[in-house]
């Protein structure tokens, strides 16, 4: 759907986007992740034709954006960070304005109604936008991006400033849209990206630091197989039993839960599942396992790891 190759953009001496290449497949949700000022919005602005890159090429649905901007822009629906709404218009008026702006050929009323139902803003469609709540404004913003059924949706931090209920609703809307649209979503809310996106691009200082699925990202960065256990029995015996097993890197009692119950963090070698051997060894010693959790490196850790590592490497250079 989108092919971006060797994209660069500078503001004066600051390189905001530095030689970025990636692609968006059909029906995919691609997450843009990165610290503030990493170049996410600049990249999105370039894909939407709002800014012209210094170097590089953008193809949308096979059309070169720089050579044929009007044609390419027809395939894009863009929701900027602040939803672009005219406060003096009603929802319905704004959407019909968008239809005309985006060269929609069919029945404008029907198209507006379709988008309104999709975003759940039926009950506010005749109200002035300045009187709408933040959640409804955000939905109306998404509705403007959906007008004309564009193949690609670009959503810049779509859930920023919403309450948890609204966030869930907007996420559900986005999830349902991915069936018919390819979506690029930027966010710095990691669980959101994790929950919604098929693949993630981590951008740091204008460069792509990593690009993969959320699971792979967190897995590839993990150096050990980590478990948290709660075991009943004398602490010394438990520590001795566990540390005498194969493939164990370290074991540590981290908290006392009861007189006889302690919580432990066990690190095993990566790619070696130590749960079974742990279970049998502890069962033999009459030390029952009351709780067992596999600790995955969260996307948050992965993100911090990648961005910090980049910073360190740059510092060394």
């Amino acid at each position: 759907m989108i092919e971006v190759s060797n994209l660069s953009k500078s503001y004066g001496s600051l390189k905001a986007v530095d030689n970025i290449s990636f692609s968006l497949k059909e029906g995919e949700i691609l997450g843009f992740l990165g610290p503030n000022g990493a170049g996410k919005t600049t990249t999105m602005n370039m894909i939407c034709g709002l800014m012209i890159p210094d170097e590089g090429e953008i193809k949308i649905n096979g059309i070169n954006l720089l050579e044929n901007p009007k044609k390419a822009k027809r395939h894009i629906g863009y929701l900027p960070e602040i939803p672009p709404l005219y406060p003096d218009m009603t929802v319905m008026e704004l959407l019909s304005f968008c239809c005309q702006l985006k060269d929609y050929n069919g029945n404008i009323q029907e198209e507006c109604q379709r988008v309104i139902s999709l975003c759940g803003i039926d009950n506010v469609k005749t109200r002035l936008i300045k009187n709408l709540s933040k959640g409804y404004r955000q939905r109306t913003g998404i509705a403007t991006a959906l007008i004309g059924n564009p193949k690609v949706l670009i959503l810049d931090e779509p859930t920023v400033g919403l309450d948890p209920k609204q966030i869930k609703e907007i996420r559900d809307v986005i999830k349902s849209l991915s069936k018919k649209h390819s979506i690029i979503l930027s966010s710095h809310i990691l669980p959101e990206v994790n929950a919604l996106c098929d693949r993630i691009v981590i951008i740091n200082k204008g460069k792509i630091a990593a690009i993969d699925t959320p699971d792979n990202l967190s897995y590839s960065l993990q150096s050990s197989f980590n478990l948290y256990l709660e075991i009943e029995g004398p602490k010394e015996d438990v520590l001795y039993t566990i540390s005498s097993l194969n493939n164990i890197l370290s074991v540590e009692a981290v908290k006392q839960i009861d007189e006889k119950i302690f919580g432990y963090v066990v690190k095993g070698e990566k790619d070696k599942d130590i749960r079974r051997s742990l279970f049998y060894a502890l069962a033999d010693g009459k030390m029952p396992i009351l709780k067992l959790e596999v600790e995955k490196m969260s996307l948050e850790d992965a993100f911090l790891h990648i961005t910090l590592e980049e910073d360190l490497r740059e510092g060394e250079e």
Binding site: G49, R74, P80, C98
Partner: peptide, 14 residues
Amino acid sequence: KYGTEKLVFSSPVS
């Protein structure tokens, strides 16, 4: 102020 120029200029308009 309202950011609507992003809406306008990301549409096929000169």
